[in-house]
């Protein structure tokens, strides 16, 4: 399995001395192609910090974060921007869709920023929208979409142009169970097609779509879960 994400003793602290807060203690973790990883843990345990490091939104205070073979901590701002446009897609908790742009225009942004032609960006945006089941809603503005549809636009934007690494910070927070499930099916399909996704969630039913669930606590990885081999369904009738 090709490693797409690696944390090697990566740590992040804020401030110094007596007021220093350690958001993430030195942590090592690898995530391979095809793998869906879920990160769980109480609020304040360092989940968003970990994801921001992988997404190149933040740099480690110590250790290394390697994404698709590149040491994120040593990249220049321009190189980081390229990594974010071509390799890593991020779905934020509050989605960050631009209200003045249509769904298609929102999805096309990363490609336009990357200097692709309008036509090329538009075609890729349509393909991404189709992959999340929204082919017919490209002309709608975010406010005219349901919560689940907005969620899928945000995922399409994170994946557009064939980005392989999808990072999602509590993306299913406010969704009802069937809508949340359809989002999880998308993430699963992305990974089954050779991509990688890291999902931060407090929702166990969503985390259960992952191949591996890691648990953070007070900035440390404390445990890891893998699917049970033989699921007992409702046993014998009482």
């Amino acid at each position: 399995m090709t490693t797409l994400v690696e944390l090697d003793g990566a740590a992040r602290w804020f401030g110094a001395g007596h007021t220093q807060v350690t958001a993430l203690h030195p942590t090592s973790l690898t995530v391979g192609a095809g793998e869906l990883l879920a990160v769980m843990g109480p609020s304040g345990s360092g989940k968003t910090t970990l994801l921001s490091l992988v997404g190149g939104l933040d740099k480690p205070s110590a250790g290394r974060v390697v994404v698709d073979g590149q040491d994120v901590g040593s990249l220049k701002p321009r190189e980081l921007a390229i990594l974010r446009r071509r390799t890593v897609g991020y779905v934020f908790q509050d989605l960050n869709l631009l209200a003045g742009l249509t769904a298609r225009e929102n999805v096309a942004i990363p490609l336009e920023l990357d200097g692709r032609s309008i036509g090329e960006a538009r075609a890729a945006a349509n393909a991404a929208l189709e992959s999340v089941g929204l082919a017919s809603l490209g002309d709608r503005f975010p406010d005219d979409l349901s919560g689940g549809e907005q969620q899928r636009v945000a995922i399409a934007r994170a994946l557009v142009g064939g980005r392989r690494i999808l990072l999602a910070d509590e993306p299913t927070g406010a969704l009802d169970s069937m809508t949340g499930e359809s989002v999880m099916r998308l993430l699963r399909a992305h990974c089954d097609n050779g991509g990688t996704a890291i999902l931060v969630t407090h929702d166990a039913a969503h985390a259960a779509w992952a191949d591996r669930v890691v648990f953070l606590r007070d900035g440390r990885l404390v445990d890891e879960a893998h699917p049970a081999p033989n699921p007992e369904l409702a046993t014998t009738a009482p």
């Binding site: 769980m40 099916r185 699963r188 166990a204 039913a205 985390a207 259960a208 779509w209 992952a210 669930v213 648990f215 404390v222 445990d223 890891e224 879960a225 893998h226 699917p227 049970a228 081999p229 033989n230 699921p231 007992e232 369904l233």
Partner: peptide
């Protein structure tokens, strides 16, 4: 609690695989 949480999540992962 964490041992139990892990066991429950692993069960949930197995159910979810069958659901998928």
């Amino acid at each position: 609690l964490q041992r139990q949480r892990r066991a429950s999540i692993e069960q949930l992962q197995a159910y979810t695989r069958r659901k998928a």
